[in-house]
Design a protein around this nucleic acid. Structure first.
Lengths: 196, 196
DNA sequence: CCAATAAGCTACGCATGCGTATCTAATGGG
DNA sequence: CCCATTAGATACGCATGCGTAGCTTATTGG
């Protein structure tokens, strides 16, 4: 603050970094990867560019840091002893996650993977790889391991049906699927493909 | 060209516009929507900015024009009198389309719909709306209309299974699904959901 | 309470995109 | 074959992001 600064509380350390992490995610949501700039992030975080450059060399580096912090995502734990219910729960976990800024950023990186390969790679190395299966897969494996589901039905295709349809509906309708739509995905697509 | 220009063939009218259309699509593929600039398009088309501004006010306007030109996409015509074969043909049409520059641009616009709503709207108004159903839907309706398929099975979910999985695999693997994967989508997900 | 640390401000030269103006010269219709 | 049309070149002032330098000043551990 300049010469005539009034008393302010100056953020430091953790609190400052948290604010910057929030800012970079918000910037990606609003402006997109292609418009992500140190200037923009600094402006939104209400801090100085110098503060950013002291810690991160590029906006992407900062973004990966923020995403690493925003993780991990909750993992579905089969609890209902009912496949249908647990699948719906897993996909609901997905739709809940999709509305977060971190998820928007992850999906942006994924859909621009060809454009920013280093970014996608860093995301996988630092964030995804450490974590195991995806949403429905966790549930499906659990039931298959207990003989409640034919393991032969768990293919690279069938394990993706739930997530694929959630994403497709989200794109087509510009909003995450409703509870009814999630249930329909399970009932009309997923369970039939599992032979149930 | 400047003072020391050698003899060149100067493009005019149609040929020039075609070159510019190609250039804007290539720019979107390489640089992305967020980096789409008149400068970049002009550079790639090897023409002057003034030429662009004479016809289009913004890069997005130019892009929509180019997409309108790149369309229409081929429509699946059920021909095999075999549902499975025709579904595979329809999805293959989709995977073939997905590798074109126009498709990459369309998918970029779709996935950044929230960021550039006017662009998405223009795309739908000028390009998609005029056209009817999507890839598999066309086939499914054809068979349902002829009583070869239970119409009750054609829901907003089931009609999207094929496209949803093609997109999901494409995103996950950073390449369009192979012929085997397309067949697996039909056999393991689509046909079971249709009750077959 | 003091000194080390780090946040915050300002300003810089450079690069790039903007949208426009002004010129030149290639092209093709009449 | 001429001349209206228009592609193409160049340059402009403006804005914004870059990455760095230099400073002032709030904060806090000792």
């Amino acid at each position: 603050m300049g010469r005539w600064a009034v008393a302010t509380e100056r953020r430091r350390g953790e609190a400052l970094i948290r604010a910057i992490h929030e800012a970079v995610l918000a910037e990606v949501v609003d402006a997109g990867l292609g418009q992500l700039t140190m200037e923009g992030i600094a402006r939104r975080a209400a801090t100085a560019k110098t503060v950013l450059y002291r810690r991160w060399a590029t906006p992407f580096e900062l973004l990966i840091d923020a995403l690493g912090e925003a993780y991990p995502v909750e993992v579905p734990t089969p609890a209902a002893d009912n496949l249908r219910t647990d699948l719906i729960a897993a996909l609901t976990l997905l739709t809940d996650w999709m509305v977060t800024p971190a998820a928007t950023a992850v999906m942006a990186i994924t859909s621009e993977r060809g454009r920013y390969p280093e970014l996608a790679e860093a995301l996988w190395d630092k964030v995804f790889d450490p974590r195991g299966g995806t949403f429905t897969t966790t549930v499906l494996r659990w039931y298959a391991a207990r003989g409640r589901l034919d393991p032969a039905r768990l293919t690279p295709i069938t394990t993706q049906i739930g997530e694929a349809l959630v994403f497709k509906l989200a794109i087509d309708n510009a909003r995450t699927p409703s509870a009814e739509e999630v249930a329909a995905i399970v009932d009309e697509a997923l369970l039939p493909a599992l032979g149930l």
